[in-house]
Design a protein around this nucleic acid. Structure first.
Ligand code: FES
Ligand code: FES
Lengths: 141, 141
DNA sequence: TTAATAAAAGATTTTTTTGTCTTTTATTTT
DNA sequence: AAAATAAAAGACAAAAAAATCTTTTATTAA
């Protein structure tokens, strides 16, 4: 479903949402250590998210990555599409050129349900809200 | 979700289920042309399925691939696991070392539900039955 | 205002996946 | 028995994804 880079991106964004803020930024080193993810690879991913304004960053001492209030209103769908491209949620699970209910592949009904369930959550839940839920329910990142 | 090889495998097996039989075998050339899939790559995939007794084959003139009656009783789950390995249906969508409802990641609930829907179909529907449904409902492969 | 810090950017390397080509082996038809 | 056919096997090449390293730029704290 998601590329390795995209999995790292989602986890990193959620980590930032929970553990960082404008006043308490987190560096690549901290995030990569906390999530047990390759440091330099993660750096690239965070850069890409930053360029696309899905996370915020500042250079220099006491600099690092964090989520602005605006960033917290975005959704993971945007994060996913920033890394894996725009077709993640509408491509056929068997790789047919188009996915549609009019011309369904044999797995379409189930695959579509799965994909849409996930899509719906990622699309409608703000990252900030997700973070609160993670803290409340003590979910793993 | 599925590797390219696995997508090709599923489609090829379904093609054989619909268009081939012990009396009317299909060669790599036919299948790759019908599904618009790289020939030599598909050959490797069919070999692997054949070695694992998920499809049948014979060499020589009028040889080719087909599904025996026994093959038709198998499921696509077995095909998928033959190509992509045994963890496809129980690994965390975010790549955490284990996926469980006790230690869920933030996407677990949706991801699990979605995955299980698909898993259930692939696990409980015999390839032979799927083929009949494909013919009946004129689904695309 | 200098030194230290940390992200940004760029260039490379490694690994995995995908795809191709050639040779061998089994089978069948002539 | 010989020729033709088609899968099996093995070796290889190309492309994509993942991971690493180095240099540059911006910022801040001393
Ligand atoms: S057509 Fe294949 S998943 Fe929709
Ligand atoms: S724990 Fe992540 S999908 Fe189950």
């Amino acid at each position: 479903m998601f590329s390795q880079a995209c999995k790292y991106a989602i986890r990193a964004v959620l980590y930032l949402a929970v553990h960082a803020s404008e006043g308490k930024k987190a560096g690549v080193k901290e995030v990569s250590a906390a999530l047990d993810v390759p440091k330099y690879f993660l750096a690239k991913i965070l850069q890409q998210l930053s360029r696309n304004h899905l996370i915020s960053s500042t250079k220099g001492p006491s600099g690092g990555f964090y989520l602005s209030e605006q960033n917290r209103e975005a959704t993971l769908k945007e994060v996913v599409e920033c890394i894996d491209g725009p077709d993640v949620f509408n491509s056929c699970i068997l790789g047919l050129p188009v996915c549609s209910s009019e011309n369904p592949c044999p797995l379409h009904v189930q695959a579509f349900a799965y994909r849409e369930g996930l899509h719906y959550q990622l699309k409608h839940q703000a990252i900030g809200d997700l973070a609160k839920r993670i803290e409340r329910e003590e979910q793993k990142i």
